[in-house]
Amino acid sequence: MPFVAQQMVNALQLGSIYALIALGYTLVYGVLRLINFAHGDIFMVGAFFSFFAAAVLGLPFLPTLLASMAATALLGVMIERLAYRPLRHAPRVSAVITALGVGLFLEHFTLASVGAQPRLMPPLIASAVYQAGPVRVTTVQLVIFLVALLLMLILDRFVNRTLTGMAMRAVSWDKSVVPLMGISVDRIIALTFAIGSGLAAAGGLLYATAYPVIEPYMGVLVGWKAFVAAVVGGIGVIRGAMLGAFVLGGAEVLVAAFLPSTYRDFIAFGLLLLLLIFRPQGILGRREVQKV
């Protein structure tokens, strides 16, 4: 039993990070119906921004978090403006290919400019271990969980309670009527990219805090996993992304606990395939009725 509880803590840690990244996929998909395949690499860039803020500028945790979120949000907006906006009325495949291209560009640009050797993230949080009953929790885990939870709560309230959040939901519902209500679709989309990228940067910093080795390809696998989480939860559904992330995190931790850890990816993507066969719209997704 203590073993299972301990694994739950690990699952929460992994799930929190996946959730922050998965939200970016789901938000962008919601407003643009675009799978932003570059998002995993935006997460990686966010981790590098955090690394520079912490290691080069020597900032403490909170300023590092805010600085890297802001810088990455700006990057996200720029990508949208330069690469995706010209394609908004093009066939959707063009936009998806572009997203793949942007992702590869970010990877290899980072590789060429900072080099391939992995960097070590300096510890920003004094490590201490708390014993809560049978379970050991580290400060790092607590911080990860609390920061992720806080950001998700803010996002949830923002989307559901504010006027701008409502406009965002309106855009994802029907882009054509929104201008009639005096809302600029371009601004809402830019904002969505900013929020999604900012959350990815937070995910990047938290990831680097938990697993302090960062390198240009780190976004590939983590990004895809987060994407799986978004799909499992029902892509386009914000709460679905969070749910999917914790389901995936749980599944992976369980696999790692009982099987050789190399089976992790196998299980994660196998889970995805099974889900797509039996419930293609995801756990919380709505099924679209075919129109003839």
């Binding site: 936009a95 290919i97 560009f105 060429a112």
Partner: peptide, 14 residues
């Protein structure tokens, strides 16, 4: 080199 190839792809798509 590998950064330029995907950039070309993006331009091409646009």
């Amino acid at each position: 080199r590998m950064a330029i190839a995907p950039l070309l792809l993006v331009f091409l798509m646009i």
